[in-house]
Design a protein around this nucleic acid. Structure first.
Lengths: 161, 161
DNA sequence: ATAAGATTGTTCAATTATTGAGATACATTC
DNA sequence: GAATGTATCTCAATAATTGAACAATCTTAT
């Protein structure tokens, strides 16, 4: 492996810079993987990003996805979210369900027919992750997971402050 | 793909699943950070993603960015790339320079005036990364960097195969 | 209760981005 | 030097997004 420059000197700025490049490269790789999948399935970038939010949200036991949540998460206007959900609903991936408690609210639910598509979307990322993981010890992988979690927490905090 | 852990069998699948969620969450956080910055500067998502490619490419000593490279990297058609570069050029972020060797080719270069903007774009990510990094030892950080590098390599390989 | 105000999501016309099929200029190959 | 391939651009058609107005529902204060 020849990953990072200057491994011995504790050069803080350049290490930080190297990290930024690594993270942005990762970001682009993931976006591209997402986009390739989108194109293969006749979907658009926005639709897949919305699906990603809906997927991980239902997996993580988070609060149910609503148009407002999607608006914040995707950085779209309310009209664009409505259009996006119209497309996803028309293509059979999601359904809109009125909340019984607050009848203004719409829950976006993932149709069971679309789970095969989700698995397919997962698979390239899963394959690459698996291969990368195989090169590290369990202890190292725990460290990496802890770092990713910490970074996600910091990034989430950053946007609120 | 159920997150249900089975203590007897290997934790491998559920660990992999946890990693996928961590990575996609990171992907969304980075995209949101990017988008927020875009909105604050009157730019669109596509333009910023293009700038990200141009930034890291000039930083990494890679081959110079061309419209074709952007087309592949952003998953756009050639017409859309032309429009995107028109916008970036009009707003003063980049310039088009004809290659002297192959005069069909256009090099997209980052204007020096735009570097301040780039730093500003970096800063939220840098701040969050720095805070996260502070929680780990140098040895751990080296491991994390190695993993990120390995993952990027695998993801890049995935899209070619 | 009821009215005023805030919140959630939709509609719709105007704007903007993207596509997709050419066209152009240059390079390479035979 | 003609033919083929490559890199980029042009432009009309299509599709997505904005932004403001709207309807429906919840909340709060009186």
């Amino acid at each position: 492996m020849q990953p990072t420059p200057s491994p011995d000197s504790a050069d803080q700025p350049s290490d930080l810079f190297a990290y930024a490049v690594l993270l942005r490269t990762l970001n682009r790789e993931l976006n591209r993987s997402t986009l390739d999948f989108a194109h293969e399935n006749g979907l658009h970038a926005t639709d897949i990003h919305a699906l990603s939010v809906i997927m991980d949200s239902s997996a993580g036991g988070d609060a149910p996805v609503t148009p407002t949540r999607l608006r914040e998460e995707l950085g779209l206007t309310s009209g664009a979210v409505t259009a996006c959900l119209d497309r996803l609903e028309r293509s059979g991936h999601v359904s809109r369900v009125r909340d019984s408690a607050d009848r203004r609210v719409v829950h976006v639910v993932y149709n069971s027919e679309a789970r095969a598509l989700a698995r397919e979307y997962f698979s390239p990322l899963a394959r690459a992750t698996e291969t990368a993981r195989a090169k590290f010890t369990p202890a190292e992988l725990t460290t990496v997971a802890a770092f990713l979690h910490a970074l996600n927490t910091e990034l989430a905090a950053e946007r609120q402050g």
